[in-house]
């Protein structure tokens, strides 16, 4: 379990982290969300000692983090890259050795990881000779080769094509299923909703919302009401609702969480023939927009 508590980081007058905290649990995937500049990267870098915090603690399995623990973590920085001239397998094995693996174990692990990611036949090539997509796989192999107990991925999906996204999502799921703690940041909220067990939303250096995906959605002060009438001219709006979107005669409102769906459906039916009705917790993207609203 990874616990960040009360992280504070100032760069001169700029406050990057203002008491941010979160908890990531083993076997679960935590989506770390927030607008640009909210402090996601700074918090992730802090886990790897790349940021000198002004305050706050980082614990792993209840103990203060130290460098010996860190080498068992895997990190994919936002700024990605590998030595362009070095051969793929050698480079991945070298990075594994930096994290404490013996020479032989490192080479075995590099082979196996590359094989796993479909790069087995390119292991002897120089990194610069790989296609963009394959370079990203090699990059992922660099973060995974030592079978990390904690995986921290900074925007892992940015710049990936749909197949790359699938590979990445599968890797993330497998690692979590294998018992690893996974933490990743993303702007692609639908993807996060598909993939994550837990979410933490950070805004201006503070975590404003955190919990399991289910909790976060049900705890929201709104519900998502979707309604369509057979006759498109019917103008009915739920009491206290705000229209979010209208498309193909179907309208989506956010209504107060305490609203009774049965009563709403009855009221709508009284206004006209209802051809479609839905009542559910808001989507993650709606929760997110609300949480970070100015």
């Amino acid at each position: 379990m990874l616990e960040l508590t009360g992280l504070v980081k100032r760069y001169g007058a700029v406050v990057a982290l203002d008491g941010a905290g979160l908890v990531a649990r083993p076997g679960r995937i935590l989506g770390f969300l927030g607008p640009n500049g909210a402090g996601k990267t700074t918090a992730m870098r802090a886990v790897f000692g790349l940021v000198a915090l002004d305050a706050g603690t980082i614990r792993w399995q209840g103990r203060q983090l130290d460098p010996a623990m860190r080498i068992r973590f895997g990190y994919m920085p936002e700024q990605r890259g590998l030595y362009p001239k070095m051969r793929v397998a050698n480079q991945i094995a070298w990075l594994a050795r930096l994290r404490g693996l013996s020479r032989a174990a490192a080479h075995r692990a590099a082979r196996a990881t590359l094989e796993n990611l479909g790069l087995g036949d390119r292991a002897g090539d120089r990194v610069e000779a790989l296609s963009h997509g394959n370079q990203q796989r090699a990059q992922l192999a660099a973060s995974l080769v030592h079978d990390p107990v904690l995986l921290v991925l900074d925007e892992p999906f940015s710049g990936l094509d749909p197949m790359g996204v699938d590979t990445m999502a599968e890797v993330v799921r497998n690692r979590a299923a294998g018992g690893a703690t996974v933490l990743f940041s993303s702007h692609q909220l639908d993807l996060v909703e598909d993939l994550c067990d837990d979410v933490a939303i950070i805004d201006r250096g503070r975590v404003v919302l955190a919990g399991s995906l289910e909790e976060v959605r049900t705890r929201a002060p709104h519900r998502r009401l979707e309604i369509a009438f057979g006759d498109r001219s019917v103008r009915w709006a739920p009491p206290g609702g705000t229209l979010v979107r209208e498309r193909d005669g179907s309208r989506i409102y956010l209504v107060p969480a305490g609203s009774d769906p049965i009563a709403l459906l009855a009221a709508a039916s009284a206004a006209g023939k209802v051809s479609g009705f839905g009542f559910a917790p808001p989507r993650l993207s709606e929760v997110f927009r609300e949480a970070v609203a100015p």
Partner: peptide, 13 residues
């Protein structure tokens, strides 16, 4: 320039 450095210093001082 290859931006490999952050990956390296995440495990090496």
């Amino acid at each position: 320039s290859s931006r490999v450095v952050e990956q390296i210093v995440s495990s090496v001082s």
